Computed example of a mutant assay.
Amino acid sequence: MWGYAVLRCPACGAQVGPDFVFCHVCGSPVRPQFPGPPPHLLYPPAYAPAPRPTRVLWGTRTKRGITATILSLILLWIPGATIVGGALLSLGSTLMFWGRHGFSLQHRRAILVAYFVLWIAALLYVIVFVAFVLTAYEAWTSGATMDRIQPATVAFVWVSTIPTELLVVALALQIRYLLPPSLRWQVWVAGLVLGALVLLATILAFQQVVSGLPNDFVRMSSVLGVLNQISIARLVEGPGFAWFAYLYYRARGAIARESAGAGEKTSTVANP
């Protein structure tokens, strides 16, 4: 009739075109009606569904930063583990800096000052250490003995005390307002004790250096031996760092209890 395949109306039998939905004679539907949604909606969408929001406590980053700092306080004063302890301390302080939101204004200000002081101390220590290494390298290339680097070693022992004392200040500021009020007095006492132990360790290291360096040519092994002697003298700082590790542990527990019942300290973010 139309020059192409035709259908017949199931009601009246009239011929209808293949694209007809209703019969042009009786008006009955030509195609069967399938129950349910159209076929193109029976399959899942090709795109990924939107992620569901979840509630994350503001204190999560701070608690993780405190955990990293506790590990660093255990390693900082141990010979051979100072570099790992310093890396963990940098990580912990950065996490606490990022997670300062949601806490009191006093804590946010203290974290800003502590973060600035910490990186000033790190930069100063790197400068002092690089200066010592360059002096030792110059003595090694000239074939000098260890007596040549004794003044540089003495300067390194005393000047490196300054960034260590700045580190004590930063450690105290980071948890000053995270601890319960009944424990805050221990922060300054622990800071004074650790500062005194740092000074005592410096005096012990100075006495070892003044008593004489090995009567040998400057080599990497001899320079590392001198640095190891200085690190051994730093072992007396252990009780002070352990006290701070305890205070950080108590601060972490206080954050967990406070955040669990504080709805205003939460933020809505999307799962990755």
Score class of each variant (00 low, 15 high):
37 P>W: 03
134 L>F: 15
268 T>W: 12
260 A>E: 15
181 P>E: 05
190 A>D: 09
50 A>W: 07
77 W>V: 11
246 Y>D: 02
211 S>Y: 05
266 T>V: 15
56 V>F: 06
175 I>M: 14
34 F>G: 00
210 V>C: 00
103 F>I: 00
264 E>Q: 14
252 R>H: 07
114 A>I: 08
76 L>S: 04
85 G>H: 04
116 F>W: 11
15 Q>S: 14
66 I>M: 12
140 W>V: 00
264 E>G: 12
87 A>K: 07
210 V>I: 10
231 S>I: 00
125 Y>I: 08
181 P>V: 03
192 L>Y: 13
255 I>N: 08
205 A>K: 03
75 L>K: 06
47 Y>D: 11
82 T>S: 12
134 L>P: 00
158 W>D: 05
32 P>D: 08
106 Q>W: 04
169 V>E: 05
31 R>D: 05
94 T>A: 15
38 P>W: 03
209 V>C: 02
63 K>D: 05
81 A>D: 01
94 T>K: 12
164 T>D: 11
89 L>Y: 14
122 A>R: 13
143 G>W: 10
265 K>V: 05
77 W>N: 07
119 W>M: 12
126 V>D: 05
199 L>E: 02
215 N>I: 06
5 A>W: 02
60 T>D: 13
183 L>F: 08
172 A>S: 14
61 R>P: 01
148 R>N: 03
133 V>M: 10
73 L>N: 08
127 I>A: 15
211 S>D: 10
156 F>I: 01
33 Q>F: 01
235 L>T: 06
36 G>S: 01
220 M>A: 01
154 V>M: 09
269 V>W: 12
111 I>T: 15
8 R>G: 04
33 Q>R: 07
130 V>R: 14
254 A>V: 00
42 L>G: 03
210 V>F: 00
78 I>W: 11
242 A>T: 13
63 K>E: 12
140 W>L: 11
2 W>E: 10
79 P>A: 14
218 V>R: 04
189 V>W: 14
261 G>Q: 10
18 P>Q: 03
78 I>H: 06
252 R>V: 00
255 I>G: 02
255 I>W: 06
160 S>L: 09
225 G>A: 01
265 K>D: 09
45 P>W: 12
208 Q>E: 06
96 M>T: 06
121 A>M: 06
41 L>Q: 07
137 Y>K: 08
175 I>F: 14
21 V>F: 00
87 A>M: 15
96 M>Y: 04
222 S>N: 01
50 A>V: 12
111 I>H: 01
97 F>P: 00
97 F>W: 15
187 V>G: 03
73 L>R: 05
